[in-house]
Simulated assay, not measured.
Amino acid sequence: MATPRRSPSEVAHAWRGSSRLFADEPETPTLRDVLRAMGDLRSTVNDMRSDLKTLQEQVAALQQQPPRAQDPHKVPLELSARVRRTHRGLGEELQWRVGLQDSFRSPHNEEVTKAILQAIKDSGESWGPESLLRKACNRFFENLKSQKRHDLEGRTEEVKTRKKLTSRRERLFRRRQMVARDVLDEDDLQYLKGADASLMSDEESGEEDKGTFVVLSPRWRSARLSRILHRCQQALEANGRMGRKPGSSRRRATLNGRFCARDPPAAWEKTNYVDV
């Protein structure tokens, strides 16, 4: 005799009943919990998409430029990543000690560095002289030491937030530079070339809507630079609506009376970008 088929609701009810035998019934999330989780997820996905678009734009721009000779003293990003992967693959016993009193050249840490260098050499990869490899190791060691210090001081989240804002300013400046040649006259274009990311607004994720950036402009930024940046931003948003690159599709909100708390740059060459 054939077993009668059960409806999807009956199957779900039976599964929930059996699952209670093995685990406590979890608390039912509220609608607000679900919406908050969806907002956080949407914000993360949007940031990842934005970073991917920026990377694609940078690759496209580099492909259009003539090849340049690589600085033999500069650590390539790929080498930094190689050092990180190798260090993590050495095992728990052979990791750098990054306490406040630990030195890069201590006997134990020197043993770790030699193991990393040997592993990279054994792989057959060519990264240049050993001095460049040691420089990459030293840089990663100092980063780990800084992270350890931030953990001890309870500043990990603060530093993470500051780095996120810095990354967003740099990305914003690069994109505006990419459209500047199409919307600015020569004088304004040359004026913008002398600026940098420190003159951009802070973009903070909205508390209620993670998909929106709350824009906090520098109070001290010159009116001319603000006007130029506004024109470039309009071009980015127009590209975003048309599906062109570089573009900007993230919603941006400006709050009246609120400015970022950063001080103006102290470098004398930036005085033309600051209204006192």
Results as ranks from 00 to 15, higher is better:
Arg155Pro: 00
Asp188Met: 02
Asp188Ile: 01
Arg84Met: 03
Ser126Ile: 13
Gln63Ala: 14
Phe173Ala: 10
Leu94Gln: 07
Arg49Ser: 07
Lys114Ser: 15
Ala61Trp: 02
Ser146Leu: 13
Glu186His: 11
Ser217Phe: 02
Arg168Phe: 03
Glu237Cys: 06
Gln56Asp: 14
His87Ala: 12
Glu142His: 07
Pro8Ser: 06
Gln63Glu: 14
Asn109Lys: 05
Thr156Arg: 12
Phe22Thr: 12
Glu93Trp: 10
Glu269Thr: 02
Thr44Arg: 13
Leu52Trp: 15
Arg174Cys: 03
Ser123Asp: 09
Gly243Phe: 01
Asp209Met: 03
Arg42Gly: 09
Ala60Arg: 13
His73Arg: 07
Phe140Asn: 08
Met242Pro: 00
Gln63Trp: 09
Gln95Glu: 04
His87Asp: 07
Gly243Gln: 02
Ile120Thr: 03
Phe140Ala: 07
Leu52Asn: 12
Gly257Cys: 12
Glu78Cys: 10
Thr44Trp: 08
Ala12Met: 14
Ala197His: 11
Glu27Gly: 03
His87Cys: 10
Val11Lys: 11
Ser9Pro: 00
Thr54Lys: 11
Asp263Lys: 14
Lys121Trp: 09
Arg219Pro: 01
Leu52Arg: 15
Ala261Leu: 08
Lys164Asn: 01
Cys232Trp: 01
Leu189Met: 14
Ser222Phe: 05
Val183Arg: 02
Ser18Tyr: 09
Ser106His: 10
Gln95Lys: 12
Asp102Pro: 01
Pro265Cys: 01
Asp47Val: 04
Gly194Gln: 15
Leu79Ala: 09
Gln190Trp: 06
Asn138Glu: 15
Leu192Val: 01
Gln58Arg: 14
Arg169Pro: 00
Lys148Gly: 05
Phe104Lys: 06
Gly91Glu: 07
Met242Arg: 04
Arg134Met: 14
Glu10Phe: 00
Thr212Gly: 00
Arg251Phe: 04
Trp96Arg: 04
Tyr273Ile: 01
Arg16Asn: 06
Glu57Ala: 08
His73Trp: 03
Asn272Ser: 13
Gly257Glu: 12
Glu92Pro: 08
Thr254Trp: 07
His73Asn: 10
Leu216Phe: 08
His73Ile: 00
Arg231His: 08
Glu158Cys: 05
Arg85Asn: 01
Leu225Tyr: 06
Glu130His: 09
Lys245His: 11
Asn272Pro: 04
Asp51Val: 10
Asp185Trp: 02
Leu21Gly: 15
Phe22Gln: 09
Arg42Ile: 03
Pro29Thr: 08
Asn109Met: 07
Glu170Lys: 10
Leu117Asp: 05
Lys210Thr: 01
Gly240Met: 00
Asp47Ile: 04
Gln101Val: 06
Thr28Lys: 11
Arg5Ser: 15
Val11Tyr: 06
Phe140Lys: 05
Arg82Thr: 15
Val183Lys: 02
Gly99His: 11
Arg88Ser: 12
Leu79Pro: 04
Arg155Val: 00
His13Leu: 13
Pro8Gly: 04
Pro246Lys: 03
Gln95Met: 06
Arg88Pro: 01
Val274Ser: 00
Pro66Tyr: 01
Arg105Glu: 09
Asp33Val: 03
Asp196His: 12
Lys145Arg: 15
Glu153Ser: 01
Gln147Met: 13
Arg244Gln: 08
Ser43Trp: 07
Gln63Asn: 13
Phe141Asn: 09
Arg36Lys: 12
Leu225Gln: 10
Ser226Phe: 06
Ser103Asp: 08
Ala267Asp: 09
Ser249Asn: 06
Arg6Thr: 13
Gly39Met: 07
Ala115Trp: 04
Gly243Ala: 04
